[in-house]
């Protein structure tokens, strides 16, 4: 129980920093609209950033070996058709199987 109440100060500093930048993105929208007009290019770039970050995060790990790449492709196929928890569980099951086979 005591372990669950342990506070890591370096993690806490990250949490505070992350909280501040996140809050700024939340209040920044209305603030920006009242002052500047974003062009279509800036708009499209902002819109694409979260997806690009996620792609960059997974690409090296997902393509590290054939079994993981296949399982990743499988998750992509089912991700929009089933609830997320189901897709994740199926993906993990697939990777365990594929790693044994390949």
């Amino acid at each position: 129980m005591l372990e669950s109440l342990h506070l890591d100060w370096s993690v806490f500093a990250i949490v505070l920093g992350g909280a501040l930048v996140t809050w700024m993105t939340r209040i920044g929208g209305p603030w920006l609209v009242a002052r500047v007009r974003l062009g279509p290019a800036a708009n499209a770039a902002l819109e694409a950033t979260p997806g690009a970050v996620l792609v960059a995060l997974v690409a090296p790990a997902a393509l590290s070996r054939p079994s993981d790449a296949l399982a990743a492709a499988f998750v992509c196929l089912i991700a929009r058709r089933v609830p997320m928890v189901v897709a994740v569980a199926a993906g993990v099951a697939a990777v365990v199987l594929l790693r044994r086979l390949l």
């Binding site: 920093g17 930048v21 996140t22 929208g29 920006l32 902002l46 979260p50 970050v53």
Partner: peptide
Amino acid sequence: GSGGSAGLAVIGAILLVNLRHLLMGATLE
């Protein structure tokens, strides 16, 4: 881990993922 520049990178990544809030907030103005 959480030390030094790794910690700053985490904050930067949080910012990048949450940048979309700017657009969402703009529509609620």
